[in-house]
Design a binder for these strands. Structure first.
Length: 420
DNA sequence: TCTGGGGTCCTAGGACCC
DNA sequence: TCTGGGGTCCTAGGACCC
């Protein structure tokens, strides 16, 4: 038996926890660069503010309804997420942290001592008490059904935010009311195709032949069908598998046209990516760089490209990663474009670094690499200051825009933006 | 003027091997 | 008349998730 717990309007709720004066007002949180809406409070949803709408398109609406707008403050959200997850881990033998605001819990043994619904309410009350955040809880025999239950718990207020969907008749009744596109794992493309085949509700999908689904689509959808019927195909993954890829990319605050600025940005992304790689205790051999202009501008030619470089010896030394990234950048940089976004991707990971020196490797592993990286990461995590490579530059005019950032209520001073 | 960032899994097809 | 069989690895692209 699985429970899926997720926080209602997570980012927006994190902002209001520390601002009780905002309760009852519509609140939205914007993506990086204050680009578009990525979270809305219940009141903002009522105003029909859609997910993903560009901020500049809704300024009138915001003024009219006194919508409270925040830049995203990931340091705050990550900290609040940790608090929620810690509480959940104290309440179940196994928890899978599925995303920043969601977790699956193993609740198989619970029904021996209390009803599943009672347990769901306990989870909700305790998280509320300890973090001032409200969660929804869905419970069922498979992850896909638990997701569905959670979805319904939020949609129908009479559930009080908790729904035990372990009863087969209740499952069928709910599935007959849920459109197929609301099923976990069914996105826009597949739901369109399913609709054309006459499959419109979750129940229709659950009653499809697995063989036909596999033939017309793929095994992923076949598993979804089985899960909807109560046959578990997905397990609880308590320990996150090691990452296979690390990406660090940002849109720029304004378009980049100068090579020097692009080099600084790539250098900064490479540094951040290398830091994440060391956080995973991994070493990489592949370093790729991509850049692109805006796809939205009508009278400009779109340019997007990417290039990959390889290290012969796996490394997590920022200096190696910057060097290969800049070499890759130089292969795809074309002057004259107005670049909107760029990024650095790391791949081909190894759990050990210098396994074997290659005789023909022209770049030797850097001496004392591990010690130097340890010092850099130590300083940067201490909250006392930041160390960075000179290649990033000092002014960083390309750095992202966050004009409505809330204070770092729970985290350190150094997470605040520097105001000059 | 202005539109996010970071991941995963699966499949098909080509290169290459014996 | 008439061109083997079976396998692995890699990459690109498509779909999905939050």
């Amino acid at each position: 038996m699985f429970a899926l717990v997720d926080v209602n309007s997570f980012y927006a709720s994190c902002e209001t926890v520390f601002r009780p004066d905002l309760r009852g007002l519509p609140v939205v949180v914007l993506s990086n660069n204050d680009g578009c809406v990525i979270a809305r409070s219940a009141e903002a949803k009522k105003l029909d503010i859609k997910m993903g709408v560009p901020y500049f398109q809704m300024k009138d609406l915001i003024r009219k309804h006194r919508v409270q707008v925040f830049s995203s403050n990931y340091a705050l959200y990550a900290d609040m997420s940790n608090r929620v997850m810690t509480t959940l881990e104290e309440m179940a033998p196994a928890v899978e942290i599925y995303s920043i605001d969601e977790a699956f819990m193993n609740v198989s043994g619970v029904s021996n001592c209390m009803s599943l619904e009672r347990f769901g309410r306990d989870v909700r009350d305790r998280v509320q008490r300890e973090t001032h955040l409200t969660v929804g809880v869905g419970i069922a025999q498979t992850k896909t059904l638990a997701k569905l239950a959670n979805h319904a718990a939020k949609k129908w207020s009479k559930t009080g935010g908790v729904l035990d969907l372990s009863n087969i008749d209740r499952q069928r009744k709910l599935m007959s009311m849920v459109p197929v596109e609301d099923v976990w794992g069914v996105g826009r493309r597949i739901s369109k195709k399913l609709n054309l085949m006459g499959i419109e509700t979750a129940l229709h999908l659950a009653e499809c032949s697995t063989w036909v689904m596999r033939k017309h689509f793929n095994v992923v959808l076949e598993r979804t069908v089985r899960e909807l019927r109560g046959e578990p195909c997905l397990e609880l993954e308590e320990f996150s598998p090691t990452k296979q890829q690390i990406v660090c990319s940002r849109s720029f605050s304004s378009r980049i046209t100068e090579y020097e600025q692009m080099r600084q940005a790539i250098c900064a992304y490479a540094e951040r990516a290398a830091e994440k790689l060391r956080g995973e205790r991994q070493y990489c051999r592949q370093i790729a760089v991509f850049l692109r202009t805006s796809p939205h501008v009508a009278n400009e030619v779109f340019y997007g490209n990417q290039a990959m470089g390889k290290l012969l010896t796996p490394s997590n030394d920022t200096r190696d990663i910057i060097r290969v990234a800049i070499e890759a950048l130089d292969r795809i940089w074309i002057a004259g474009h107005r670049y909107m976004k760029a990024g650095v991707m790391l791949g081909d990971f190894y759990s050990q670094g210098v396994a074997q020196l290659n005789l023909f490797d022209e770049f030797r592993p850097q001496p004392n690499s591990a010690a130097l990286m340890h010092v850099i990461d130590g300083v940067n995590q201490s909250g006392k200051g930041k160390l960075w490579f000179a290649g990033q530059g000092i002014d960083k005019p390309w750095a992202m825009k966050r004009q409505m950032l809330s204070p770092a209520y729970t985290t350190r001073y150094s997470d605040l933006p520097v105001v000059k």
